[in-house]
Amino acid sequence: MRPIAYLTGGHWFEQSILAREPYASALDPIYLPELTPCVLEPQQVAILGSRADADALAEQGPALLAWWHTGGDLIAFDQPPVDWLPGAAFEPRETNFWWWCTPGADLPLESPGLGDPVLAGLEHDDVKWHHHGVYHPPREARTLIATPDGGAVLYVDQRPGSGRLIATTMDPDYHTGQGFIPKAERLLEHLVVSFAAGIRPHHPRRTPPSPGRPSGGRPSPA
């Protein structure tokens, strides 16, 4: 696997992830405030971790986007602390992390892009736990996971000559590191393993999906 640059922000959950496989082998941690664009190679993959610092992202965001425009694949987790993605507006919404505890309740979510190479191999249940709002992405973007009213929970933006920009309001690295909502790891592992291998993901599922409920997960308020 080729290392993925994991842009960190000084959080415990990052250390937790980096101590475990496959993340220990696949992720190369880079502290976001100290990122210098030259360390990211063209055609490399970078993940912006959850809970990014607003000041650090405002400072480093333009260089990251410039690198994406030259061919780098950029994955951005979690709700953005500042608006920084091109042509995309973030709309915060209350995070419903308790829906699965209420009998008959549901988390309205659509996943029209499960057949896209970025998500191929995942199932709807794998991405249905919670999100931290929605994006209104640029017109040319592909929305792969959405709310019924059309808000993008995960979208892919690829321009001529650029890499893929995959932005999601889900925070699978946070919950994987915290051990809180184990179901969230399916998305993280899928993205890390497939992108580290050079993408075109089609790998077997690690665990079978649960029927509509997080697999013993304990949702977090954060």
């Binding site: 308790w98 505890c101 809180f180 304990r218 949702p219 977090s220 308020p221």
Partner: peptide
């Protein structure tokens, strides 16, 4: 416990 969810206070 909050809204039926436990474990949120700390991990």
């Amino acid at each position: 416990e909050f809204r039926g969810v436990v474990g949120w206070f700390a991990q």
